[in-house]
Design a protein around this nucleic acid. Structure first.
Lengths: 354, 354
DNA sequence: AATTAAATTGTGTGCGGAAACAATGATTAG
DNA sequence: CTAATCATTGTTTCCGCACACAATTTAATT
């Protein structure tokens, strides 16, 4: 009478001498079960290590889950466009499981601030939310609102640990900075000097970029006694931006530039390219189209991949699995710090998202 | 009358004015449908982009799929033990979907040769097979047998392209060798010389290791005019093995060793460690425990990760998705060539398998 | 035209579990 | 002592699809 795979509720009921309904009540702690029945069922359960058929379960529940995904308005930022691609892919993937995924965008402030958009999301009554919470303070309020409404949420890209999300998907940025330091130092000399650049609208308030910088400095601090490293916070396209780059490139002792924001790297690479200097090691982030061009040409030596697409995709995956199959979401999923060079870049481009 | 998510077969039937059975026949090309009904159903289908509910589908089909996984007997080879871990994980994962996964092991030859074990597998009547086909010739016969019995199979680790498997999961080894060359060359000088080591029972007949060597040489060939590179094929633990290492380490001009087989690297590292030479760049494969120790210590400079665990896990995943949900298996899934150093190794260790 | 065969179409059941619902027995109030 | 209430237990339906089977229509044969 041995069944092939797992036993079903029906089998447990038979073995315990109770009805299927009772087994169901025990399994889900629904109460209204006599001690004796409870004991009988539990005895069987302990013996057989019951694993519910997840497919049948989700079918039986009627599923139809709704997930809202929230990122900053990508405009023409290739990094966030990549993340958006991941969202689209996830949408395709999960649509077939009866899950609807709606994407929302927010801006730094104003009507479409993260707080306001989250409020709109809550109105739409989603079963779960996946979001990349930039702008710490506002984001904090936003997730508080989710909490109050008991909507589970998963964060990616930037974390708010104190809000205790279901899970976070991202990277260890301090370690990332250290790695950048190491890559920068390979084959360099004692008296060289280096620059850290952070470029963007709101970089000043970003604790994340600070982490990268801290790691970078820490590497040089602990591996080389000296540390002639300057850091600059710039805004893309401003006169100050170009002046700064010019100034840096005129310094013959400068041997490395670490750009902590992915979208600014091509601009710097362009400048280096024109300056004819080939002794500057440029380290940036992410497999964005413009970056790849300069990587091929050897202007960019190393890229560290943050996988925005994969982060978004996986964050949604976790949420859906949680909603559909009650699977646990890992508290912390820190992506590997992938080192990309001319010589392995193709292997990353070719490989699929999953 | 708009339904939330996707339309169901029932809805299509209503819209087309036919019965559910007819829709089903059209969807699955079962035939026995009049031209007029066929047209009516197709018209609706074209209009609405029907996506079947995969959960319901697999439930309805009764699932209970059986997959056989075949790898070389891991003995105490950490590489294949890692692959085995991936198999176990996949087993856990898919058990809940009613899939049973049986693991088989083979040896180089004799009673438990790959051919013989495959024959046994066929007897067990699996719905699909996932295997890592070492020993090219025998493996070729083995997969032919699978083909004759119309059992679909997915390969990983080593490919047999001419047998046209459902899919292959692995890496571009030529590119891998080139990358190793690049990593080896960083900060080295013109007149240095290098060694390529391949260690194992059956390395001679392995086309895969040859690929790595070819890539390595190609890198030096095209980037440096000279190429003082010698390669050695050794058997682990033999006197010749130790002699060779001694000999290599006594050569002051030797500045780099590239070990193409993951399990031999710690042995070499050990020797380097004792020799007190710190000017030799050692490049090996995979995040195996022993390798990690020497990576931390700085004896091993770079590891390239082949992800045996992930390869096995994903191979099985593809097969199951194919059997359960009719999902297409990618012909070729080449993993990224991941560069591991002291400074990003933790980020790889921590990250989950999925 | 009647009979049979073939082609087409419709209906019903099951997959395993969730949840609504109905039924039973026990307990209490009137 | 009966009716009402409650705790416990059993039964049924549904989820969306696949597939077997029954029913119907159409075509072929005598």
């Amino acid at each position: 009478m041995k069944r092939e795979g797992n036993l079903r509720i029906k089998d447990i009921a038979r073995l315990a001498g109770v009805s299927e309904g009772t087994v169901d009540r025990v399994l889900h702690n629904r109460g209204n079960v006599s001690d004796s029945s409870y004991a009988k069922v539990n005895e069987v359960l302990n013996k057989i290590n019951y694993k519910p058929n997840l497919i049948a379960r989700s079918l039986g529940r009627g599923l139809k889950k709704k997930v809202a995904v929230l990122i900053i308005e990508p405009k023409d930022d290739p990094y966030w466009n990549a993340a958006y691609t991941g969202i689209i892919q996830a949408k395709d993937e999960w649509q077939q499981y009866g899950v609807t995924i709606d994407t929302y965008f927010y801006l730094h402030d104003g009507e479409a601030s993260i707080e306001n958009v989250v409020r709109r999301i809550i109105t739409s009554n989603p079963d779960g939310v996946v979001l990349a919470p930039l702008f710490h303070i506002q984001a904090l309020h936003a997730v508080e609102a989710l909490k109050e409404n008991q909507i589970p949420y998963v964060l990616f890209n930037a974390n708010i640990p104190e809000s205790e999300p279901l899970g976070f998907i991202g990277q260890n940025l301090y370690q990332s900075g250290k790695l950048a330091g190491f890559l920068c130092s390979l084959g360099q000399h004692q008296d060289d000097c280096y620059a850290i650049l952070s470029v963007g609208e709101d970089t000043k308030e970003s604790v994340y970029l600070m982490e990268k910088e801290r790691g970078f400095r820490e590497f040089y601090m602990s591996n080389f006694s000296h540390h002639d490293i300057n850091s600059y916070v710039l805004e893309m396209g401003t006169p100050g931006f170009y002046d700064c780059i010019e100034y840096l490139l005129s310094d013959r002792k400068l041997k490395g530039i670490y750009v902590t924001t992915s979208n600014a790297t091509p601009m710097i690479a362009e400048k280096i390219c024109h300056s004819k200097r080939r002794d500057i090691r440029l380290i940036g982030y992410d497999l964005l189209e413009d970056n790849l061009k300069y990587l091929e040409e050897g202007i960019i030596s190393f890229l560290i991949s943050q996988n925005p697409k994969k982060q978004a995709f996986r964050g949604i995956g976790y949420m859906v699995n949680y909603l559909l199959f009650n699977k646990e979401v890992p508290r912390l999923d820190l992506f590997p710090l992938e080192i990309i060079t001319q010589h392995n870049v193709d292997s990353y481009i070719d490989s699929t998202v999953h």
